[in-house]
Simulated scan of single mutants.
Amino acid sequence: MKDFITIAIFNFPQETFVLKSILDNEGINYFFENETIVSIDPFASLAYGGIKLKIHPNDKEIVQKILDNLDSNLKIV
């Protein structure tokens, strides 16, 4: 996992829930850095630089497509 790269940063754990499901269904290896500390203390998100989505560089194109699709289709009501 030392070769993993950051492809996206989120401020709140709620922002990662749908994305986790999609990545799991696609079989993509990933992890969210700082997820636990931000879940415990949401105000720590800024101090730690947010929740960072880390992926293997080989998955960059497909994950970027997933993120772009979520940005255009996921509306928060």
Rank of each mutant, 00 (worst) to 15 (best):
N11H: 01
L46T: 03
F4H: 11
F12N: 06
D71H: 03
I55L: 10
F32H: 06
I76M: 08
A44M: 15
A44P: 04
L70G: 03
K60S: 15
I55T: 09
P13S: 10
K52N: 11
F32V: 07
E26V: 00
P42T: 04
T6E: 12
G27H: 02
Y48Q: 10
M1C: 04
E35D: 13
D3S: 05
L67I: 15
K52C: 12
K65C: 10
E33W: 05
G50S: 13
E33K: 15
S45P: 09
S45Q: 04
N25D: 12
I7W: 00
A44S: 12
I66L: 14
F43A: 06
L46C: 00
D68I: 05
K20E: 14
K20S: 14
S39W: 02
H56M: 10
Y48L: 15
D59P: 05
E26I: 00
I51E: 07
I9A: 03
E26Y: 14
A8K: 03
K54M: 15
Q64G: 07
I62A: 04
N58Q: 14
I5H: 00
M1F: 02
H56F: 09
L23T: 05
G27N: 14
A44H: 08
I28F: 05
M1I: 01
K75T: 09
S72I: 13
N69W: 09
